[in-house]
Simulated scan of single mutants.
Amino acid sequence: MTAGSSTSSLTLEELPMRVGAGQFMDPTPERLRYVKQLGGSDVLLNMYQVDDPDYDHMPDDERVPLSSDGPWSVESLCELRERVEAEGLRLAAIENVPVSFYEDVMLNGPNRDAQLAALKETIRNMGAAGIPIFGYHWAPAGVWRTGWEETRGGADVSVFDGDAIDTEELTHDREYSEAELWANYEYFLDELLPVAEEAGVTLALHPSDPPMERLGGVPQLFRNFENFQRAMNYRDSDYHGLDLCLGCWSEMGAPLEDVIRYFGEREEIVYVHFRDVSGTVPRFAEDFIDRGNYDEYALLKLLDEVGFSGLMIPDHTPHLEGDTDWEHRGRAFTIGYIRGMLRAMRAERPSGT
């Protein structure tokens, strides 16, 4: 999977399978040093989590300020990348779309083309700034959780229980059909993917979370293997692939070995959210990486077998004693666990491989 230019002397394709961190908007020196101290090599920044973000911590450009809807300038993105590199890390990706995309782009609202024009400019500017991946989702109902419960040692984990809430209560103006969502999604790809290809930026699609058939009157397109196949086959491109969220696939109850073999052999796995859950839809709970539905070490070895050599991040983790909102302690556990598995896997290889 082509993923644009790299911030190291190696291209992304030449780098080994490795661990980093993400899911934050505040790339402060302290946060970045923490990731480095854990042995992380890369960061992914989630930059579109709210309608009116506080970007005081971000580099700015008087001509094109950073905003939730407008484009981000090359200068601002370069400064952001350089901030990450100053702490010895790579800025591998920016994840998420503006909240306003839910109505305007995913549901074909009145500002669809204006929103897409801004994102196209941001993608072009990401390519020029050397930020190689844009991760996105297509779930206008958003991420749903219904509560919290305790797991090992009293650690708190988020829970989704579809039987405990009204999943059909409308989140938007009306019910939408599957055909409408597919038409909107294909329009999005038709508009954005040629720009990404020209800019050398790879788009990476995240599953619906939770992968229910419908939520809030809106179909969850990316809830199963078949729909991901359709998305990847819609346009033949080296610049479109999967943000392989193992937790979401685990929520589906999907045959993860088949998923990894299929998309891995097609070189369509861009990066991995390495987490797991206990249970499947309509009810599951986030859990420790060693307590979920799948054999985490077997999947890591399978990723290596199919030739995946990209970045893995913890994604969601349990909230441990004394943790922060970012679950820095839960992420430390998961990063250490994945690094340990990587070391064991490499030690098992025959000499010279």
Rank of each mutant, 00 (worst) to 15 (best):
84 V>T: 09
88 G>H: 06
97 V>E: 03
125 N>F: 12
107 L>S: 15
159 V>R: 02
112 R>C: 07
81 R>N: 13
98 P>S: 09
141 A>G: 06
140 P>V: 02
79 E>M: 10
125 N>P: 06
89 L>Y: 07
122 T>F: 08
109 G>R: 13
123 I>P: 08
161 D>A: 14
68 S>D: 09
111 N>W: 04
147 G>D: 05
69 D>W: 03
103 E>L: 12
103 E>A: 11
159 V>N: 03
121 E>H: 08
73 S>R: 02
155 A>T: 03
88 G>D: 08
102 Y>P: 02
152 R>V: 00
113 D>W: 09
160 F>D: 01
146 T>A: 09
80 L>S: 07
137 H>V: 03
157 V>H: 00
126 M>V: 12
125 N>Q: 13
67 S>H: 05
160 F>Q: 01
91 L>M: 13
89 L>W: 03
72 W>T: 00
146 T>D: 09
94 I>Q: 02
93 A>I: 15
88 G>P: 08
76 S>H: 06
152 R>F: 00
77 L>R: 03
97 V>N: 04
135 G>Q: 14
124 R>M: 15
122 T>C: 13
89 L>R: 03
71 P>G: 05
129 A>Y: 08
114 A>E: 11
149 E>S: 04
79 E>R: 15
103 E>N: 14
90 R>T: 12
86 A>K: 11
154 G>S: 14
157 V>D: 00
83 R>M: 14
72 W>E: 00
105 V>Q: 06
138 W>H: 11
76 S>L: 05
98 P>Y: 04
94 I>H: 01
130 G>S: 09
148 W>A: 00
157 V>F: 01
156 D>C: 02
130 G>E: 11
95 E>H: 07
123 I>L: 08
89 L>Q: 09
76 S>Y: 05
125 N>C: 05
113 D>N: 09
153 G>D: 01
152 R>E: 01
71 P>F: 06
